[in-house]
Nucleic acid binder design. Structure first.
Lengths: 203, 203
DNA sequence: GCCATTTTAGAGCGCTCGTTCAAGAAGGCG
DNA sequence: CGCCTTCTTGAACGAGCGCTCTAAAATGGC
């Protein structure tokens, strides 16, 4: 399913990973419904038949894009910070500071794909909207769990509310993504990150 | 242009304001492109010809919806708070606390129309996206001007950065709107608002 | 060398989109 | 009343949508 070497049949003439990257860029920039199959095939350098043979329908392609994005450096930096930093405070500090630099990076479309790629959607694509919403709410649960663990370890004041703090960080991150899409530069977002960190409960 | 009494000709058979409200609800819920003329005419209780005669094309209708929303209680609460509260701190406290209650209010679609109604858009409707983005960035400028004035009046520490503080509040408000659309209740958003207010610079 | 298998290119499917048009209906005004 | 103006209705326009189909082309296995 992942990288099975085709034995029989005509070999694929295009780079599947490169095509997926091109699709990612389009969905990231314009969102799910505002990206047409025609734009996708042109950017991916293939014809519709090849797209449907390699990725299934548009919905499947989008979900594969989202999964691939979640494994990429830009999409996974939060999980990496939570894993690598020794304390919760260090982890969230790093998350906000990195988001401030990553979100407006001109090397890719602004903001976070998971946050902004399926916000305006027709009723028949509500499933796609829910797919991303579930990821966002699951990330919030990861934040909460991490903060709760930190509290039990004594890193975080007993008076603090892990769920409330997690929701606060989720909101500021989503806001920073939106601001990046509205043109905010890394300098502004870094100031926002520093101000946001003032909410960390006093020891 | 606003409410000119029609003198000659067949009178309009529908309530223009009620139709605008119905359109507002749809655009608010699904966004600009994900709302079709067919859905609009059905919700407004009119036929396409009547829509085009009364509101112009889809873009014009949307812009009128946005302007009308900006004059409604839900759309204007920030400006009201800035105008009514005696200090900048009181104003932003009120803005965040009210947003926490208004955004998830089930009496209307979740979140802020200006923030979320044109985020995913095809290239040919980029103008509509820019129309909302300009409003958001203009609101940010209003925040900054208000904070700058407060600083000159001695309400805000000289060490504070009005632009950075304005951008921070803009980000948290946009994040709260997104969280409301993701299902966050007033209780969670109120906690977020209180945490966000911790960023206010010490006197 | 042929067959089975897979991918390719390109045309085209049914459907919905935003928008327009022609004809009829409903009021004010002479 | 009959005219002028405006609104309503319902059908229809061209364009683009997601997706599929047919044939030809390109490989490995026998």
């Amino acid at each position: 399913m992942t990288e099975t070497r085709a034995k029989r049949g005509r070999p694929r003439a295009f780079d599947r990973a490169a095509a997926l990257t091109a699709a990612t860029r389009l969905f990231w920039e314009h969102g799910y419904e505002a990206t047409s199959i025609g734009e996708l095939t042109e950017a991916m350098g293939i014809r519709p038949g090849s797209l449907y043979a390699a990725f299934g329908d548009k919905k499947s392609l989008f979900k594969e894009v989202v999964r691939s994005y979640g494994r990429s450096p830009v999409g996974a930096f939060m999980g990496v910070a939570l894993e690598e930093e020794p304390t919760a405070h260090a982890a969230f500090t790093r998350i906000l500071r990195e988001a401030a630099v990553i979100y407006p990076d001109p090397a890719h479309p602004a903001g976070c794909l998971t946050i902004s790629a399926a916000t305006n959607v027709t009723p028949q694509d509500a499933e796609v909207e829910a797919f991303l919403r579930n990821i966002r709410n699951e990330n919030l649960n990861v934040f909460e769990a991490h903060l709760r663990t930190a509290q039990q370890a004594g890193e975080l004041s007993d008076a603090a509310n892990p769920r409330a703090l997690a929701a606060y960080f989720a909101a500021i991150i989503q806001g920073m993504s939106q601001r990046a899409r509205d043109g905010a530069a890394a300098a502004e977002l870094t100031e926002t990150a520093e101000l946001a960190l003032a909410a960390w409960p006093a020891a």
